[in-house]
């Protein structure tokens, strides 16, 4: 599903974000990628979306060889996965319905298909009643749920959530996490980057901890913090 082989990333200004990362995620997994800001977890997500190119190594996502993908093939990679961001990234000039439908329109889906899928996705996140409102009229949690509906409307096999609860209060964060968990239960692979300790500890999922560009821990049913003293100094 997702595989990184000896991946390193150095930005043009000399910052080393990732050092020789090896990581594999299988179909149907739910993976937390944790680490403090600047640890390299955002760079990891950027590599998966080909927002940035790896300096060294190979990246495979959904069967795409990301490192050798040409510029005009990138949209097709991105369509094959769903994406949720900390800042929601909804189109401000489109209604909730249009925002979700847009993800299908770009794939040139049939109008009939769109009319069927969009209400289903909105129902899944519990926003059927808000279909005709604009993002600015919604709360943060609702906006993130719209983003989630948009990410899921094409039934992707992989969902990447980059700090999905970063802008939300704890209660709303839990709602989003429950939704992500539900999506995972339906068979979608879910990758979540976060630094919310309570959520990670509670969910007891696979935890990949990154620090200073290195994977310091990869644990099934892990905790946010390890007993390892070396690791704690970064938190």
């Amino acid at each position: 599903m997702v595989e990184l082989k000896n991946v390193s990333k150095t930005y043009s200004n000399g910052t080393v974000a990732l050092r020789d990362i090896n990581l594999k995620m299988d179909k149907g997994e739910f993976v937390f990628v944790v680490g403090p800001s600047g640890s390299g977890k955002s760079s990891l997500v950027k590599l998966l979306l080909k927002e940035e190119d790896a300096t060294e190594g190979e990246v495979y996502v959904n069967g795409y060889d990301v490192s050798s993908l040409s510029r005009h093939e990138v949209p097709y990679l991105r369509r094959s996965l769903g994406c949720v961001f900390q800042d929601f990234r909804l189109l401000p000039n489109k209604t909730v319905y249009e925002n979700v439908a847009f993800a299908m329109i770009i794939t040139e889906a049939l109008p009939k298909e769109i009319r069927r899928q969009v209400p289903m996705a909105l129902a899944l996140v519990g926003l059927s009643r808000k279909a005709n409102t604009y993002p600015s009229q919604l709360s943060g949690g609702e906006q993130q749920r719209v983003a989630l509906a948009r990410a899921l409307v094409n039934n992707p096999s992989l969902l990447i959530a980059d700090e999905p609860t970063g802008n939300l209060d704890p209660e709303t964060s839990w709602e989003i996490m429950k939704l992500l968990s539900e999506v995972n239960n339906r068979g979608t692979t879910v990758i979540v980057t976060t630094h919310e300790k309570s959520i990670v500890d509670e969910m007891k999922r696979r935890v990949v901890a990154i620090s200073k560009g290195l994977i310091v821990r990869d644990q099934e049913k892990g905790q946010y913090r390890d007993e390892d003293k070396n690791c704690q100094t970064y938190h």
Binding site: L49, H72, P75, Y76, L77, R78, R79, C83, F85, R89, L90, L91, P92, N93, F102, A103, I106, T107, R150, A151
Partner: peptide
């Protein structure tokens, strides 16, 4: 430009 960015993230082609 943000709008353009968002469209790129969800997989719209340049021409679209």
């Amino acid at each position: 430009r943000k709008e353009i960015n968002i469209m790129k993230y969800i997989g719209a082609t340049d021409w679209f």
